[in-house]
Each structure stands twice: as structure tokens, then as C-alpha cells.
Simulated assay, not measured.
Amino acid sequence: MISDAISNINFWEMLLRTTFAFIILMILARFMGKKQISQLTFFHYVTGITIGSIAAEISAQTETPFLDGAIAMIWWALLTVVVNLLTIKSKKARILFDDQPTIIIHRGKISEQGMKKARLTLNDLNMMLREQSIFAVADVNYAILETNGQLSVLKKAGQESATKQDVNAPVNDPKYIPTEIISDGKLIKENLTELKLTEEWVYEQLKKNGIGKVEQVYYAEILTDGKLHIDLRTEGK
């Protein structure tokens, strides 16, 4: 009988704690504004997770005093609003909390420094481009990694607006799917095999472009027409 009574008390207590936590969370979400909800930056992402974790803690853990948890949520939200105001008023504060966009591709050239700063691999970059239906780095003029982790891309002129159907030009099936064959100075042999290309062919193409060693190439990909797009290393020069 006693255990049943305790269980009933815990049941109603958890309902009340969860209800009040839900109400406080909704009020704080409106208070912090749409910028927090959209999680525009890493800071807002972390803030959202933290406030959600505190709400979950005071809802599910009876050992946690509800008032203490509510104060923590409210104070965290106030700190977030203060930081938002600082970032609006101060450029230095904005850089400190939100960081800055990073140029990954500049005028068709992959920035090794930008890749290292963003801690991106060439595979990561290709994946992010494919998510925007871009299968060849050679089609990109500029690519910027935004503070929210999204990649903004400006295609090269002639790659963005009119299609061949728009100008009634003949349409041919691509010979290849754009595929990387050199990554960070190393041949990707499995991709060559899949494309039915040989290492000798690659060396010949590099030689035609005045490149003596594969190690000189930071990135290279085969384009749809069979041509090779080459991005040379810049560091160490």
C-alpha cells in the first residue's frame, strides 16, 4: 500500500514537473527569438541542446530540485540573449561567439588553408557539393562554409542558369560521372578501376599539363566529358 502511494505521488509529480518545464521552455524559446530556433551558428546549436537537456533533467529526475533547474534554464536563456545583443553591437564579439564564414573554393581553386581551418576533407567537400546537385568541383567558382555549417556555392558562369534544353542545344549523355582520382597527392586506384582508367593515363594527362609528380596535385577529378580537372598544391611554394 505504501509503495503504491509513493508511486502515485511520483506519477503526479512527474506530470507536474514535465508540464511546468514544457511551459517554461516554450516561453524561453519565444523570448530568445527566431535566431535561436533556427540554430544559425554553433553557439546557438550548443545553447539549444543545453537548455533542452536541463528541461529534460528537471522533468525526469525527481532528485533534481525543480526550482534550481528552472533558474538554470532561465539564466542560460538570459545569457544567450545578452550574447546576441553583444554580437549585434560588436564585431569582435560576433567573431568570438559565431566565428566567420570560411572560403573553401576561391575562383575555382580549392583553398588548402580554408580546408584545414574548417577541418574538412576532400570527401566532405564533395559530399556537400553533391547535396547541392554539384558533382564536379570544376563547376564551382566560389564555395563558402557558413557559420551554421552549410556550404554556399556560386557556380561558374555558364553553369548556373540556362540549360541546353533552354537554348535547344543537343544533349549528350555524360561519358563519366565526375569522380575524384587524386586526393591530397595520392592516386585513388579504386576509382580508376571503376572508371576503367589506368595510372599511365593519369600520368600522361599530368605530363600534358606540365606536372611531373602526382604529389604536386592537391585534387584532381575526371569530368563528364573525360577531361581532367587539376587543382595543384599551393602550400610549400
Rank of each mutant, 00 (worst) to 15 (best):
T47K: 04
K164G: 04
M32S: 06
D99A: 14
E63A: 15
I103V: 13
L96E: 00
L78V: 15
F31Y: 09
I54N: 06
A143F: 05
I49F: 15
T64K: 11
V140K: 02
S38G: 00
S59E: 00
K117Q: 12
A169I: 07
K89Q: 08
I58A: 04
G48M: 12
Q113Y: 06
I95P: 00
K89D: 00
L122W: 03
Q39H: 06
I134C: 07
S152V: 03
P101A: 14
F43Y: 15
L151V: 08
Q36R: 07
D124V: 06
E131M: 10
T62F: 07
Y142N: 11
E146I: 04
I51F: 05
L151E: 05
A56V: 01
S38M: 04
V81K: 11
K109C: 03
Q36I: 10
Q36V: 14
S90F: 11
M127G: 01
I71C: 09
Q132K: 15
L67Q: 10
M128Q: 13
K117L: 10
I51H: 08
D166S: 14
A56T: 09
T47M: 15
A143K: 04
T47C: 12
I95K: 10
L125T: 08
G33V: 04
Q36T: 13
Q100D: 11
F42A: 13
I49G: 04
K35D: 09
V46N: 05
A138G: 00
M32H: 02
Q150T: 11
Q132N: 12
K91E: 12
A143W: 01
T62D: 02
F42C: 06
A169Q: 14
K117H: 10
Q165V: 12
Q36S: 14
I88P: 01
A118D: 11
A77F: 03
K164P: 01
D99H: 14
F66N: 02
Q36M: 15
L125C: 11
Q100C: 09
L79G: 01
T64G: 02
L129E: 11
N84F: 10
I71G: 06
G108S: 05
L40H: 04
E131A: 02
S152D: 02
R94N: 14
V167R: 02
